[in-house]
Design a protein around this nucleic acid. Structure first.
Length: 633
RNA sequence: GCGCCCGUAGCUCAACAGGAUAGAGCAUUGGAUUUCUAAUCCAAAUGUUGGGGGUUCGAGUCCCUCCGGGCGCGCCA
């Protein structure tokens, strides 16, 4: 489809240039119904509006020009000026290889850094974190598919108050030694409860002691620091195990403690002072602080970057970290292996593995929920004001709404829901939330029971492996099907579904196709790839039947533009919906068009071809969505 | 107080940058397997797109206003 669109674009652009001496973007629409056309060109409206011409007249002119394109069979002008194009089916079918393999010449951006997940290493991951990880991972897959170089970072805030609070709990509430902690199997679960207990009986005294613990952790060498290091790494390991269940990995795990130890801030501070972005305030309420001016709605405000006690604020650390991401800081971390798949930062040069380096991206995406918009914006402004306008321009906050718990689900778990509220906010401090591992366990359990029911002959190993793929896809699709600014009100009934618009439905459709092709080859002795080679003859097909196959082909041909739009609008849900649509078409054809039993070889060939084309497009889409494809279900 | 986001079918959500008759899933009712996996498919029913006004060839989408909801605005991270 992109192949034909490019041809059309060229002709329209040339026309606009010749006639008006200008350049307008050429845009296409999908007709609401395939009977109206295979593709709609909306240029008549755009040109008409800008040149104050009647859209219909422009449409007529374009129609005459576009008639020359070989692949276009008919052009209709509809309504106020839609240019509806009908493709020549025969030519399209026979040329489908070009359609699939055609690649628009895109320009490479340079290295893109995507930061996502970023779970505080002080308790178990919950479903909200999974939304972040799945969105981030899918963004990575989308970019990689288009050939971009992508580096994936998962930032570990191992010196924050959250970690300090559980260190305090382990030390002073539970009196655990590090060895005791080491013996706990799921330390993230233990800390989930401990974290709640820390806040349950909070007092002025405990508050002070927590602050003291936090201080000691930031300062360096102390027992508290050792606890913090042990806990954050142990929990990190658990988090990585959790996201691995969804097929999610990272290139590097930058640690805040290393940012502090390597004094990233000092370099950033120098740069900020030099560019005049921050200055010392010697009066008013921010007396003794280094502050940055922020303009908000015409008003000038001060944002504290260095506190009066010399400590750096969160924004300050974030600014220095982002300067590093763009390679603008004259400093770098050292890196060592954390496990088989991940590198982690270290501040000790003697631990460093040689020849390994990260950061210095051309473009950065931060996958962080919508509540952080204000701070993300300040970081962006700071970088821009320091004179790095290009970097600021290439810094994108990939923002999304959070996950809350439905009233029903919350009550099932024994949480109180405020009167009149239909959902409850997830809160680590209160322990309100669904642990990711618990949810995945439950999904796996249900999937396994379904697989066993359907395939009692499978070995338990095989069944379990399939169940794992199903549970992973169920969760991934659940997190992806909502648009970014839709608040997900998590509901067990909805999330545990395997029917309808779900990940398992997509997998099932894929499995059906695979097994159909396999059976076809077994029974006929002909390879599918050989069978579907051109030429095609449509005469034998009833026209309405052919039309529904054609519709499926047109829809499947939109893969490239759908991926493109998903990336441009930063909206992975769009691609998820597209996968679902493909599967609906696949299943419809599957149910209504016989293949192996079809006596008419031409009909069989065209049906098989259509299914195969959809299957190929679906496979690419599933890969990008991170949905695995089981052999059987 | 200021700023951002949201309000669409009984429920959960779509609607591509302002485009054509606002669509899916779930739930409900009825149907499909001598035929390629029924985690499937088909059919029926469901709407004053929160209310009102404006902009234009055209508004769920943009502007104003009102109502209802969410979030953010720290010398917390």
């Amino acid at each position: 489809m992109e192949y034909i669109k490019d041809k059309i674009e060229k002709i329209v652009s040339e026309y606009v240039k010749r006639e008006f001496g200008k350049e307008y973007p050429v845009r296409f629409l999908n007709p609401p119904k395939i009977s109206m056309g295979d593709l709609t060109l909306s240029s008549a409206f755009e040109i008409g509006k800008r040149e104050r011409k009647n859209p219909k007249e422009i449409a007529e002119k374009l129609k005459a020009l576009l008639n020359e394109i070989d692949e276009i069979e008919k052009i209709d002008i509809a309504g106020p000026g839609y240019i509806n194009l009908f493709l020549n089916k025969e030519k399209y079918f026979n040329n489908i290889k070009n359609v699939i393999d055609y690649k628009k010449s895109g320009k490479k951006t340079g290295k893109t850094i995507v930061e996502h997940t970023n779970i505080n290493p002080n308790k178990a991951a919950h479903i909200g974190h999974m939304r972040n990880a799945v969105l981030g991972d899918t963004l990575v897959r989308m970019l990689k598919f288009t050939g971009e170089e992508v580096e994936v970072q998962n930032y570990i805030d191992d010196t924050g108050v959250q970690v300090a609070d559980v260190v305090y709990g382990a030390l002073y509430i539970d009196n655990k030694s590090i060895d005791d902690l080491r013996k706990i199997e799921k330390i993230d679960y233990y800390l989930w409860d401990l974290y709640v207990r820390v806040y349950e009986n909070d007092s002025e005294e405990s508050k002070n002691r927590r602050r003291e613990v936090h201080h000691k952790i930031e300062k360096g060498k102390s027992p508290e620091r050792e606890y913090a290091e042990f806990i954050s790494l142990a929990v990190l390991k658990r988090h990585l195990e959790t996201v691995e269940r969804l097929g999610i990995y990272y290139d590097v795990l930058p640690r805040e403690s290393d940012i502090i130890a390597l004094k990233f801030w000092d370099s950033a501070f120098e740069l900020m002072k030099k560019s005049g972005v921050i200055y010392f305030q010697d009066e008013g309420e921010n007396r003794g602080c280094w502050v940055m001016k922020v303009f908000e709605d015409g008003e000038e405000r001060e944002k504290v970057i260095v506190k009066s006690n010399g400590a750096i604020t969160y924004v300050g650390k974030d600014i220095s970290y982002h300067l590093w991401k763009f390679g603008l800081l004259k400093k770098d971390f050292y890196y060592k292996k954390f496990d088989k798949r991940h590198y982690i930062t270290t501040s000790k040069s003697e631990e460093a593995e040689e020849g390994i380096s990260f950061g210095s991206g051309k473009r950065v995406f931060n996958v962080i929920d919508q509540r952080q918009s204000y701070l993300q914006n300040i970081v962006k402004k700071a970088i821009s004001k320091m004179g790095y306008e290009e970097a600021a321009e290439n810094l994108t906050h990939f923002s999304y709404e959070v996950v809350a718990l439905s009233k029903k689900s919350a009550e099932e778990m024994g949480f109180k829901v405020e009167e009149g509220k239909s959902f409850v906010e997830v809160s680590g401090r209160k322990g309100v939330g669904v642990k990711a591992d618990d949810l995945i366990d439950e999904l796996e359990r249900r999937a396994l029971s379904e697989v066993r029911k359907r395939h009692p002959e499978f070995s338990s190993e095989k069944s379990e492996s399939i169940a794992r793929m199903i549970s992973s896809s169920a969760l991934r699709y659940y997190m992806l099907k909502y648009t970014l600014n839709s608040l997900i009100v998590f509901d067990f009934d909805e999330a545990l579904k395997f029917e309808g618009e779900t990940g398992p439905y997509l997998q099932y459709s894929n499995v059906r196709m695979k097994s159909l092709f396999r059976k076809f080859e077994e029974e006929t002795g002909i390879k599918v790839e050989d069978e579907i080679k051109p030429p095609y003859f449509f005469e034998s097909f009833e026209s309405d039947k052919l039309e529904s196959l054609w519709e499926a082909i047109v829809i499947a041909s939109r893969f490239d533009s759908e991926l493109d739009a998903s990336i441009k609008n930063l909206e992975p849900s769009r691609l998820a919906k597209f996968a679902f649509l493909l599967c609906q078409k696949l299943n419809y054809i599957y149910n209504n068009f016989p293949v192996i039993k079809e006596k008419d070889r031409e009909k069989r060939k065209i049906t098989l071809f259509t299914l195969h084309f959809l299957y190929k497009q679906l496979n690419k889409t599933l890969d990008i969505l991170g949905i695995e494809k089981p052999e059987a279900m």
